[in-house]
Amino acid sequence: MKLLKAGGGAVRVWTRKCAADVQQLALDPDDLIALVSEAVARGRFTGSEWCQQKPAGPWAACDAYALTRHEWVQASRKELAFDYYLKFAIGRTGTILLLVSCHLSL
């Protein structure tokens, strides 16, 4: 939580798939901070696992969370529930949060 309070520069999208998912969801750095903060505060911890940045990249010890979030959808003119899956790790130096997965659960 301390890293998230440091601002958008502390969160780094770590994988190509995560970058594509974040782009498709149209999330900016402030949105990512809010989403990860909410997941840690009230989401469901689903486990820890080792993740490797492909191809043959470094490994990171990650925590995964599931979060149901109610968001306003203008096209529907109502709030809808969205189920997010987030996986992240704290970098080796302890100064950045590496976002490994950030997508909607289907």
Rank of each mutant, 00 (worst) to 15 (best):
V100C: 04
A61N: 13
T68E: 15
G91W: 02
G47L: 03
R92L: 11
I90L: 08
L35P: 00
L32M: 11
K2F: 13
Y84G: 03
E71L: 10
M1W: 07
C51Q: 12
I90S: 08
R92I: 10
L27S: 04
V36N: 01
Y65A: 01
Y65R: 01
A41G: 13
A34D: 14
Q23W: 02
F45S: 09
A10L: 09
L80N: 13
D30W: 09
K2A: 15
K2G: 15
V36K: 00
A89S: 11
C51G: 07
D31W: 00
E79N: 06
S48C: 13
A81C: 06
W59A: 15
P29L: 01
A39I: 06
E49S: 14
T93I: 09
V11H: 06
V22W: 02
L32V: 04
W14R: 09
R42I: 11
L106Y: 10
F82D: 13
S48Q: 11
L32T: 04
G9Y: 11
V100Y: 02
L99H: 10
L80T: 12
L86P: 04
V22F: 01
Y65T: 00
G57Y: 07
I90V: 14
L67T: 01
I33Q: 01
V13H: 04
L4N: 06
Q74I: 12
T95M: 12
K2D: 15
A89P: 04
L86G: 01
L32G: 02
V73A: 10
E71R: 13
G8R: 03
T93Q: 11
D63S: 14
K2R: 15
F45A: 13
Q74V: 15
V36D: 01
A56N: 14
L80E: 13
H103G: 01
L67Q: 04
R69N: 08
A89R: 00
H103P: 00
L25E: 10
D28G: 12
W14A: 08
Q52A: 00
A60K: 00
D21Q: 05
H70I: 10
L27D: 05
G57F: 06
Q24A: 15
A64I: 04
R69F: 05
G91F: 03
R16M: 12
K78P: 11
L27H: 04
T46D: 04
T95S: 15
D21M: 06
